[in-house]
Simulated assay, not measured.
Amino acid sequence: MNAVLGQVVLSKAGRDEGKIFVVTGLIDDSYVLISDGNSRRLENPKKKKLKHLIITDNVIEAIAQKISSGEKCTNAEVRKAIVEYNLPVDTIV
Score class of each variant (00 low, 15 high):
Asn2Arg: 10
Ala3Pro: 04
Val4Gln: 12
Leu5Gly: 02
Gly6Gln: 03
Gln7Asp: 04
Val9Leu: 07
Leu10Arg: 13
Ser11Val: 14
Ser11Arg: 11
Gly14Lys: 06
Gly14Arg: 08
Asp16Ser: 05
Gly18Gln: 03
Gly18Glu: 03
Lys19Gly: 05
Ile20Val: 15
Phe21His: 05
Phe21Ala: 13
Phe21Met: 13
Val22Leu: 13
Val22Asp: 08
Val23Trp: 05
Thr24Val: 13
Thr24His: 08
Leu26Tyr: 06
Ile27Trp: 01
Asp28Met: 07
Asp29Val: 05
Ser30Leu: 13
Ser30Ala: 12
Val32Ile: 07
Leu33Gln: 07
Leu33Thr: 01
Ile34Tyr: 02
Asp36Lys: 05
Gly37Asn: 07
Gly37Thr: 07
Asn38Trp: 14
Asn38Thr: 10
Ser39Asn: 15
Ser39Asp: 14
Ser39Ala: 12
Arg40Asp: 07
Leu42Gln: 01
Glu43Trp: 03
Pro45Ile: 06
Lys46Gln: 09
Lys47Met: 11
Lys47His: 07
Lys49Glu: 12
Lys49Trp: 06
Lys49Gln: 12
Lys49Ala: 13
Leu50Tyr: 00
Leu50Arg: 10
Leu50Phe: 01
Lys51Ile: 03
His52Lys: 15
Leu53Tyr: 02
Ile54Thr: 11
Ile54Gln: 14
Ile55Arg: 13
Ile55Glu: 10
Ile55Gln: 12
Ile55Met: 14
Asn58Ser: 14
Val59Asn: 01
Ile63Thr: 03
Ile63Ser: 05
Ser69Gln: 10
Gly70Met: 02
Glu71Ile: 14
Glu71Gln: 15
Glu71Thr: 14
Cys73Pro: 06
Thr74Leu: 07
Thr74Cys: 03
Asn75Val: 06
Ala76His: 10
Arg79Gln: 11
Arg79Ile: 12
Arg79Leu: 11
Arg79Met: 13
Ile82Phe: 04
Ile82Met: 03
Leu87Ala: 11
Pro88Leu: 08
Pro88Asn: 09
Val89Phe: 11
Val89Thr: 14
Val89Lys: 15
Val89Cys: 10
Ile92Met: 12
Ile92Leu: 14
Val93Asp: 15
